[in-house]
Simulated assay, not measured.
Amino acid sequence: MKNQDLKIFIAGHKGMVGSAIWRHLEKKGYTNLIGRSSHELDLRNQGAVIRFFELEKPEIVIDAAAKVGGIWANQEHPYTFLMENLQIQNNLIEASHRFECKKFIFLGSSCIYPKMAPQPIKEEYLLTGALEPSNEGYAIAKIAGVKACEAIRKQFGKDFISLMPSNLYGSYDNFDLESSHVLPAMIRKFHDAKESHRPVQLWGTGSPLREFLHVEDLADAVYFTMNSDMEGHLYNVGSATEISIKNLAELIQWIVGHQGEILWDSSKPDGTPRKLMDSSRFFELGWKPKIDLETGITNTYKWFLSNRDQLKEVKFK
């Protein structure tokens, strides 16, 4: 679909993922991008979403809208993460189906897979075991989105595809310590500790292994998906490399320039022990990530330094 006049609705275009996709498509010459802020269009409101689709009639829909957060936020607000994500994605999927969109790309997360799934995690491991309890609500919502896209594809033959990225990071990330994911939270903690000459305290033991993907690589993967004919409905999108949380902390500490002590609070949860995804199905189509972790974190920290005075805290009700 390299028709650059295609009308493309990027849901969540103000967030880290959506804004990266918007910038990437603009660079590729797409001129008919549509975005609405949450104040302009409440994606939880089915009637509002239907009216928007009736008016705009987008040809491609990219669902980068979600209620997201780290371990603490997910544990403290399970209903919020379950219900709001179900509302957002159900409204977008149904409207895209009803108004005959040419392509729908649903973005999820590696947390949809069982906590103790064999490693690396293949797409077929979905629904073969129990989820990580700390983010179960979010994961169940995303699983429902994957299955809805699969069902539409099966029943109606429509081009609805789900991409499951590994842990994402990059410009426009959430650096709020109460609701952010591990990598941006570490950047914020090490920076604040560097300025105040304090040690850094981190949750858990540092032993879990994690895979990270720069958001600009995901944006390129979405562009690749837009312009590819794909037989499957679900694809993992990762970097195919992993790092322990301890080594990640030491890398971020070095990049930030913090020289104090790192204190690990083993009374706090580690989360899933290992999450490395098998992205070979997607790689075999011809796509590969380009940004290594050190380069990506360095660029993310530079963005944080340039924008930290304008960063908003994310609060949950």
Rank of each mutant, 00 (worst) to 15 (best):
residue 5 D to P: 02
residue 5 D to E: 15
residue 6 L to Y: 00
residue 9 F to Q: 03
residue 11 A to I: 10
residue 12 G to F: 01
residue 17 V to R: 00
residue 20 A to T: 04
residue 24 H to L: 05
residue 26 E to N: 14
residue 27 K to S: 14
residue 28 K to W: 06
residue 30 Y to S: 01
residue 34 I to E: 14
residue 35 G to D: 04
residue 38 S to D: 06
residue 39 H to C: 10
residue 40 E to F: 08
residue 41 L to D: 14
residue 42 D to Y: 01
residue 42 D to I: 02
residue 45 N to W: 01
residue 46 Q to E: 15
residue 48 A to R: 07
residue 48 A to N: 05
residue 52 F to I: 11
residue 58 P to T: 00
residue 60 I to V: 15
residue 61 V to Q: 04
residue 63 D to K: 02
residue 66 A to F: 08
residue 75 Q to K: 15
residue 76 E to M: 06
residue 77 H to C: 13
residue 78 P to Q: 06
residue 80 T to L: 15
residue 83 M to P: 02
residue 86 L to D: 13
residue 87 Q to M: 14
residue 88 I to P: 09
residue 89 Q to N: 13
residue 89 Q to V: 08
residue 91 N to Y: 02
residue 94 E to A: 10
residue 96 S to G: 10
residue 106 F to Q: 10
residue 107 L to C: 05
residue 110 S to N: 11
residue 116 M to T: 06
residue 117 A to I: 04
residue 120 P to S: 08
residue 121 I to Y: 00
residue 124 E to Q: 14
residue 127 L to R: 13
residue 133 P to W: 03
residue 133 P to E: 12
residue 137 G to W: 01
residue 138 Y to N: 03
residue 139 A to V: 03
residue 140 I to F: 06
residue 140 I to C: 07
residue 141 A to R: 08
residue 144 A to S: 15
residue 144 A to W: 08
residue 145 G to T: 07
residue 145 G to L: 11
residue 149 C to V: 02
residue 157 G to E: 05
residue 159 D to P: 01
residue 160 F to H: 03
residue 162 S to N: 07
residue 165 P to E: 00
residue 166 S to C: 15
residue 168 L to V: 00
residue 169 Y to T: 08
residue 169 Y to N: 13
residue 170 G to K: 03
residue 172 Y to G: 01
residue 178 E to L: 10
residue 179 S to K: 03
residue 181 H to W: 04
residue 182 V to W: 13
residue 190 F to C: 09
residue 191 H to L: 13
residue 192 D to P: 03
residue 192 D to E: 15
residue 193 A to G: 09
residue 193 A to I: 09
residue 194 K to E: 04
residue 197 H to Y: 08
residue 198 R to A: 14
residue 198 R to K: 15
residue 200 V to K: 01
residue 201 Q to T: 09
residue 207 S to N: 15
residue 211 E to D: 09
residue 212 F to E: 09
residue 213 L to K: 00
residue 214 H to S: 10
residue 216 E to Q: 13
residue 219 A to H: 06
residue 224 F to Q: 05
residue 225 T to Q: 06
residue 225 T to D: 08
residue 234 L to R: 07
residue 236 N to E: 08
residue 236 N to A: 09
residue 238 G to Q: 11
residue 238 G to L: 06
residue 240 A to D: 13
residue 243 I to R: 00
residue 246 K to L: 10
residue 247 N to R: 12
residue 248 L to I: 12
residue 248 L to E: 06
residue 253 Q to L: 10
residue 257 G to D: 01
residue 257 G to F: 02
residue 258 H to V: 07
residue 265 D to T: 10
residue 266 S to G: 11
residue 266 S to Y: 09
residue 269 P to C: 12
residue 271 G to N: 11
residue 273 P to T: 00
residue 273 P to R: 01
residue 281 R to W: 04
residue 282 F to P: 07
residue 284 E to V: 03
residue 286 G to K: 08
residue 291 I to H: 06
residue 291 I to V: 14
residue 293 L to S: 03
residue 294 E to K: 11
residue 295 T to L: 12
residue 296 G to S: 09
residue 297 I to Y: 11
residue 300 T to G: 09
residue 301 Y to Q: 11
residue 306 S to T: 08
residue 310 Q to N: 13
residue 315 K to A: 09
residue 316 F to V: 04
